[in-house]
């Protein structure tokens, strides 16, 4: 089964789900994200679900649990690109995705987080991080 890539850019892990997610794959992704957080000490994970045409209670549970688990490891998970129809369907089912922060797209997600990071970073590290985000460091493709 093909792997969902986890890219690392500076302190940010970027996960883009581009295939239909079945249950086992969702659980494997959770495992992979947590291991990657441990390995890299990333402070933020963005999970892009723009391609997901449905999020049912199982996928919803896995996503919300991943966010809560990551939080215990001091990492924030931002869910990116949830489709309008998916959002409405989740709410209609009565599901609430506890512990999840959202953003409209990755750029917006990074902006939201950029503000928070800026607050705790000194100007030097900020400019350093911005250069990294500009892409000087080659992205590191998921190997686990």
């Amino acid at each position: 089964m093909e792997q969902i890539p986890i890219l690392k850019i500076g302190p940010v892990l970027i996960v883009t789900i581009q295939t239909e997610l079945h249950d086992r794959k969702a659980e494997e992704l959770q495992e992979a994200i947590l291991r990657r957080i441990q390995k890299t000490g990333a402070s933020v994970v963005t999970v892009d679900i723009t391609a997901l045409e449905i999020v049912d209670s199982f996928i919803g549970r896995v996503l919300s649990e991943t966010a809560r688990m990551a939080k215990i490891m001091d990492t924030r998970v931002v869910l990116v690109g949830m489709r309008p129809a998916v959002t409405i369907t989740l709410l209609e089912m009565g599901l609430e995705l506890e512990g999840i922060d959202s953003a409209i797209d990755i750029e917006d997600g990074l902006k939201k987080l950029g503000f928070e990071l800026r607050k705790i970073e000194s100007p030097e590290t900020r400019s350093e991080r911005e250069t990294m985000l500009a892409g000087e460091e080659a992205p590191d493709y998921g190997d686990d």
Binding site: E53, I54, D56, S57, F58, A85, T89
Partner: peptide, 17 residues
């Protein structure tokens, strides 16, 4: 509609599971 399609697919996913 897109919304109704999503509702059907989501409900079927739940019931199939």
């Amino acid at each position: 509609s897109i919304l109704s399609k999503t509702r059907v697919a989501t409900a079927v996913s739940e019931l199939a599971r």
